Amino acid sequence: MKKLKWGMIGGGEGSQIGPAHRLGSGLDSLFEFTAGALDHRSQEGIDYGKRLGLGDRAYGDWQDMLSAEKKRDDRVDLVTVATPNSTHFEITKAFLENGFHVLCEKPMTMTVEEGEEIVKIARTTGNICAVNYGYTGYSLVRHMKAMVARGDIGKVRLVNAEFAHGHHADAADANNPRVRWRYDPAQVGVSAQFADCGIHAMHMASFVTGQEVTKLAADTVSCIDVRTLEDDAMVNFRMDGGAVGRLWTSSIAIGRQHGLSIQVFGETGGLRWSQEHPNQLYYMPLGERLQIIERGEANLSPEADRTTRVTIGHAEGMPLAFANIYTDLAEAITARKEGRDMDPAANLYPRAEDGLRSMAAVYAVAESGKKDGIWLDARPPMFR
């Protein structure tokens, strides 16, 4: 199969997320890194892009990239937006409207209204707008979803999700520019920790259970009192399939490193998975012994088999999870080019609708936290 052409905005030298995207996009030789506007500093971005082999398709800013790429017969097939949060909407909107498929880092937008506009544009243009909830790319997360869907644990009663770390727990570090911006409303909006990490856990709950969050109640707190926005949140929620949800997210949990985990409890069994130990999925059937399902073992679901690359016992990490999002998108784009249906086992990439639901939850958590945890509708207006 001919490689698809891939471009990136943001993710420049020293970026935390850029290398994971470049590794993920190229891992299966489905995409060729062709174009990029990698830094807000024009010349630095051009120089870095050239060192990565982009040549004259290393651009000084995203506007130059859009202007040049839309005129080319060999334009990029997919653009990844990995810039600061406040720029996601403008860039994603512009590329969608000009005929490009987009993978946007989360959060997709800064407001619910912007999120609804992106959903409408994607639906109107027919272009793909995916959102990088990259942890849903893990093989055993996809197997977990398949097990729930086929009824292995019966009707889901309860889902418990966490994303807690302790890397912002030092009060003496609160004014460090690399930390402070994350709690600055001018740069991140109405929420800090929940918008940064909590929405990963909430999206994971919806992804695995196949249910959407309808309402929630939140207790939010700034444990370091100089912060305007929360560094810890506890969220109770209800889902449209009847499941009850509990979510804890924190950046002051000393001793926690990454801290993303999910547990799903049904009428006839329970499942448990942690991102720090992604090769094992724990399955407890009612009245039986605990089973440990290993990534790469025989007789897993097609969704898990498709997203496994190395043999059992060897670790697969975050870049490979990202790569599974890219393989989903490559299949979706190629199927469109070839005029066929895509492989259903690959039809799992997070959509603009997921990004919109997350933003509606962010605003509901922020408002509920200010109002002593009252229950609020967590759905965006267009989905009510």
Rank of each mutant, 00 (worst) to 15 (best):
A195H: 05
S29V: 06
D39T: 05
A171F: 09
E13A: 05
D343M: 10
R41P: 00
A192D: 01
L54W: 04
R41I: 14
H258L: 14
H168G: 03
V264W: 03
D77L: 05
Q193N: 03
H88W: 12
I312T: 14
L320A: 08
F31Y: 15
D61N: 15
M318K: 07
A345C: 12
A360Q: 12
S191T: 00
K106L: 00
N299Q: 15
P84Y: 10
T34W: 11
P285A: 10
F95N: 05
E367L: 09
Y133T: 07
H258Y: 14
M359H: 12
D173T: 04
H101T: 06
V119P: 03
V365I: 10
R22M: 01
E162V: 03
L281H: 03
D61M: 06
C129Y: 02
R256A: 10
K106C: 00
V362C: 15
D225N: 12
D74F: 09
N85M: 14
R57D: 00
N236T: 13
G198M: 04
Y349F: 14
A361K: 11
E105T: 00
G26D: 07
V188F: 13
A161P: 07
I46H: 10
G55N: 12
L66K: 09
E69V: 02
A172F: 08
M65I: 01
F383T: 13
S222Y: 09
G189I: 05
G24F: 01
Q187V: 04
E69A: 01
I91S: 11
G166V: 01
G317V: 13
S86K: 15
A201E: 03
K3L: 04
G60N: 09
V148H: 03
A346Q: 11
M202Q: 12
G255V: 09
V365Y: 01
F265K: 07
L4H: 08
D28V: 07
A201P: 02
A130C: 11
M318W: 12
D305N: 14
A366S: 15
I46Q: 08
M382C: 15
F163K: 04
F89T: 07
P302D: 01
R384N: 15
H203T: 02
A82K: 02
N175R: 11
E44W: 06
K337D: 10
G296C: 13
